[in-house]
Nucleic acid binder design. Structure first.
Lengths: 142, 142
DNA sequence: GTATGTGCAAACGATTTGCAGACTG
DNA sequence: CAGTCTGCAAATCGTTTGCACATAC
């Protein structure tokens, strides 16, 4: 494989910082946002290093990754063992883990049905959360 | 402006070509691939124009759009009225529309449950199709 | 001490945009 | 004709890489 599970990374100030900042976030963050947050926190870490660390975490399976509307990668520390799916608010960025047991089963069944193998699935919900669509706000009301 | 739903586009050689090439494709194609296909077909259309036409089609709802693993946009003419979900083979690009009634319902229910509004959902399956994982091929066998 | 990690700046690749000229209606 | 559309080249933007230096073990 790709050096994924080597568990041999050196412990550096930068990596600790990135990991810490990532954990300190509620929802998904982009590499750039993370870098900015670190900088704002007075921690100097190169953008390059943020990207590299995030990629490392990704291949080690320590983070979940989604893509926002522009194809930008958003990272989130993985809660526990398995992967999850989220509903992300496009106004405030709030992300809610949703129960997707049913979807998982549907995926498994569908995969079997169509004869695909090594299937990856993406299930993303993006909308406007309860806090963000208060009366004053609505400008989208079909 | 974005001239989205104006229905006033001029009929040009380039647009017809792009639309034709798009329709001639089985599965999803990237703008670049489409441009290359057109060129290979002897039809000269600027890459810019391909992008612009595709964006037009997208906002008019005439194509479905997914993102491949690298965040590249892939387009496909929309089969009929509603939107569909697909399983895409990452080896040969084959795309299969899958029955996602269950998922749609789960989405609706979940959305109601968490109080989100104006929710968009993405459900993508990527794997290796039956034709591509013939015995000779397997190098991923967990 | 040596293999790794870091940071800067430059490279990248997909997509978008400015602008002058070509074309549709 | 006037308003669009096209295409080239240049600009963006997120992300990756080359390379010399710093650091962990």
């Amino acid at each position: 494989m790709y050096g994924t599970a080597r568990g041999e990374w050196r412990t550096t100030r930068q990596r600790a910082a990135v990991l810490g900042a990532l954990r300190a976030c509620d929802g998904f963050v982009s590499a750039q946002a993370l870098h900015a947050a670190l900088a704002a926190d007075g921690v100097a870490v190169g953008l390059t290093t943020v990207y590299r660390t995030l990629r490392l975490l990704e291949s080690a399976g320590h983070v979940d990754v989604v893509r926002d509307g522009d194809g930008e990668r958003l990272y989130r520390p993985r809660p526990d063992g398995g992967h999850r799916h989220y509903a992300v608010c496009r106004e405030c960025g709030l992300s809610l883990a949703v129960d997707s047991e049913e979807v998982e089963q549907w995926v498994a069944r569908t995969v079997r049905l169509i004869g695909f193998r090594a299937v990856d699935h993406t299930v993303e919900l993006t909308g406007v959360c309860g806090d963000c669509h208060r009366p004053a706000d609505r400008r989208t009301d079909p």
